[in-house]
Design a protein around this nucleic acid. Structure first.
Lengths: 200, 200
DNA sequence: TAGATTGTTAATCGATTAACAATC
DNA sequence: TAGATTGTTAATCGATTAACAATC
């Protein structure tokens, strides 16, 4: 979350408070929007002062569930799945990749980035032990729907889907899609339709 | 772009026309929105019939610049950069990764996924030949701003930035940010704040 | 002609911004 | 008290949806 990142940066700089105007300067989000967003989580600014960096950091981390380790499993041990398994950005933010699953016998049993590759069919069973509630799908599109259903059976509650396909609502699961090709396509559009706007 | 993907799927199924209501069924985007979006690119539906799959595909591809190969360069030959260099989704959509750049002498000269790793300092020069106008940043946050500036000097017009940092506006360049950690954080938020909504 | 469906205008809804009383 | 800044309400803006004349 951008506010957490901003607060962390401010803390590293030794600042003790940050006003909504300061946050606007750092993020580009208008101060009014900043105040509205933050107040939605509770009333933890001080009028005339701003937000205490430490206090806001603590409160926001807790609200986001980022005050403790969050366990993640990845399905798909290809290029992308492997890269995500070793992605330091996740580790640095308190996420821990517990297992990588795949259906390819030549991959099962090997390790990628220090994480064991397990047979996808064992996900429901093994995830009872691991207790991950966040899953990442890094498979071809054709496999994604089936994987999502297996994840749901394994107790996964939220899915980050990198497969370029819409997942038909898996019961009780929140799905977020990241479509890398689409991102490139949007840039491509800007190439031929020059405009000075920013693309997101 | 979701309309292109939908049209391609319809073509594979042998359909000749698609109405805005059909597209709503396939994408979840309301038919009114579909018509508004498409009409914005020109008037190429037929009343009483819908959109000709072939015709719409051709027109939209051209408008998006996806009727020809689009060249891409990647900076950062780490896990993520390497995965993106070999990502089939890009290739299948007409993007071609021309080079991967890095500043690590142990990587320069090697190949990742069949693409040569070149010294980042040579980007402005080598990209004159390659002619890529799309760049992907897959470096640590600290390096991203410098890379963006080098890219601009090399004629890169649009940037897909995976580094978790806001790029201060690089002149004449469109930047799109993909923050993988943020995506996971958003899911994390849904874990503790159960709601039946979809996350994007 | 009757039925279907677009492109577009008008109505609705939601999100952003401006403004300001409360208060540190 | 005077200055700064929050939290929130009211005003504005933009985006989505509904509705329908045009037309295939």
């Amino acid at each position: 979350m951008i506010y957490l990142r901003t607060l962390r940066a401010a803390k590293r700089e030794g600042l003790e408070t940050l006003s909504s105007a300061d946050i606007e300067r750092r993020t580009g989000i208008s101060s009014a929007q900043v105040r509205k967003d933050i107040s939605h989580f509770g009333e933890f600014g001080k009028r005339g002062i701003g937000y205490s960096v430490d206090h806001a950091l603590e409160r926001l981390s807790k609200i986001m569930g980022l005050d403790r380790e969050q366990r993640v499993v990845i399905v798909g041990a290809g290029n992308l799945g492997s890269a995500l398994a070793g992605y330091m950005g996740f580790r640095n933010s308190g996420f821990r990749v517990m297992a990588v699953y795949d259906n390819d016998p030549t991959k099962i049993g090997r390790k990628v980035r220090g994480v064991e590759v397990v047979n996808i069919r064992r996900l429901p069973q093994t995830n009872r032990k691991l207790g991950a509630r966040i899953g990442i799908i890094a498979t071809p599109a054709a496999a994604a729907q089936g994987v999502a259903e297996i994840m749901a059976r394994g107790g996964i509650k939220t899915i980050l889907n990198f497969a370029p396909t819409r997942l038909r609502d898996v019961n009780d699961t929140v799905v977020r899609n990241v479509d890398l090709t689409q991102e490139l396509e949007i840039l491509c559009y800007f190439l031929s339709h020059e405009r000075k706007a920013k693309a997101n």
